[in-house]
Design a protein around this nucleic acid. Sequence first.
DNA 1: CTGAAAGCGCTTACAG
DNA 2: CTGAAAGCGCTTACAG
Lengths: 335, 335
Amino acid sequence: MASTIRDVARQAGVSISTVSRVLNKTCAVAQDKRERVEKAAVDLGYIPNPNARSLLMKSTGGIGILLPHVSGEFFSEFLTGLDEVAKNNDFFLLISASHDRASEWQSSVQSVYKRVDGLIVMAPQLTPRQLNLVTDVPTVFVNTPVAPRDRQLVDIINFDNLGGTRAATEYLIELGHRKLAYLAGPERAFDARERRIGFVAAMDAAGLEDYTILQAGYVQEAGRAAATTLLAMEDLPTAVVVANDYCALGLASELMASGVRIPEDVSIIGFDNVPSAAFARPSLTTLSVPIREVGMQALEMLISRIRLSDESPGRTVNLPVELVVRESTSTPLAG
Amino acid sequence: MASTIRDVARQAGVSISTVSRVLNKTCAVAQDKRERVEKAAVDLGYIPNPNARSLLMKSTGGIGILLPHVSGEFFSEFLTGLDEVAKNNDFFLLISASHDRASEWQSSVQSVYKRVDGLIVMAPQLTPRQLNLVTDVPTVFVNTPVAPRDRQLVDIINFDNLGGTRAATEYLIELGHRKLAYLAGPERAFDARERRIGFVAAMDAAGLEDYTILQAGYVQEAGRAAATTLLAMEDLPTAVVVANDYCALGLASELMASGVRIPEDVSIIGFDNVPSAAFARPSLTTLSVPIREVGMQALEMLISRIRLSDESPGRTVNLPVELVVRESTSTPLAG
DNA sequence: CTGAAAGCGCTTACAG
DNA sequence: CTGAAAGCGCTTACAG
């Protein structure tokens, strides 16, 4: 299991160049030698050292995935999409998570440098400044704020955070809701900021000024804490737009524990459409991000760049998100 | 961004040996040269080529994670645990999923070979024979059937699939259930087989012979399909033990859609305790596998082996699973 | 403290 | 078709 190409050459009685040529099918080799080499390779359980290969050839067969973290159904679905495409194209995935901060981002990039042929990066919490691009390796950014001047250097896939939240808010207003609240995601994350802006835009457009914005977060606990805050208010809003599903689920759960009926008393809308949103009772109205497909599409773009050495200007894709209406929203009861 | 150690040496006016010594802090270097080298390295944005390094030194700083697939909350939680420990110890994760079959297993192993310092493998669907160990790299197996004779070569962390399911079944019997059904996971997976045996063992011990076993699977759709089969039976069982949570959630959802009340008409118990199990309505009674902690513990074991070149005999850990009682189970109504 | 040299395991022109 | 040789970018004894 620790044999080298030299061992195989010796065993087969040929030069190492010949072994290399047989194993890489690079050019014609005499039939008998070819067979001897193949047999020797199998007998010795020879596996080429990829480090030596990568040193010579430029490619590694690896794709680096840089994520803020790896937990939750959202990232799980994203990885599933990536994994499927990677598998079909014989790439392996090198995953570096938890680069919430700019400093960690640097070390994340370093840790994959030269070990991968391309990069898929999701970093919603980095500013365009902090995100200094690695221009000598093909990169696709997903849900990441990239400065306009850098847009032609890389491919970008974003979702319509602002428009989605705006549409969700408008939907509630159409149902007759007038007193709304918004639970915001982490301020540092650009997607959270965009969603918040979408809410405010819809309220402003409808001329509704009586709303509450609570700083929450992207986790269930944040939603539970927000529930406590809301319950302490004089009167509850009739509808709450929430920055993501986990937070919305936490909110719903905590409100119901206090006797608030969902959706009769309070309607709720989340964001992401994670699998749990459908399982929950009441099931959660939410904005669906086809994150699995996004992962697949991102990797396909990346691989075609790598394979074709495609140097054309970067493309920016902005995917729509779709409102999925479920049980957690309803028309407010009169009075 | 594509500079080599030679560029840094030239820029700093020293030999490449000196650059290497400065950057690796390996031994004393004159103060002025050290500073010149450090400055040059920063100016050039120099990042050492890890392939060249790995070729010389044995270590890579990588951990290979081999999984059957990557989707769902179970794997997501596992990865979260791994990621946390990896991050704290400056290791990166190389993930190779979808090796459901033995042939893919081989190529998965090859794709990480020499790129990682250790391996964490979860392969419940492989037989001990198919799982030919890579003995020259430290490995920890999780939830994987390892032949007894190989147990001293590697570390193993398994859960008590059999005992857990048995306890769950006994719990239902104690509640007064007499007519039970079992939805089994994929036959190929050893954990699924163990769980099934646990169910049968409990029924046998209680002298109950009137039970149904349905081949289902580990996904929601399998649970839904099983619901249809159960509904077509003459009379429904009063309780169903299910091989995992997603399947149980699918079953519950489909039964409820047909007007069956959970738990009044049918009690359900799952396995895994994924986050959705708590969100679901009714929430799901299930067997909790602390999979995040398992991931952490597995990687910690592995890292200590790597760091200490620990060659002591492999340890086998069998973790208990805990029954978490929630809303989906109850005493059967009289009559 | 420091440079020249050898070598990690491969691939690929270069000459036969 | 095939072997000897150079070289990918590093690290590490080896001599100063």
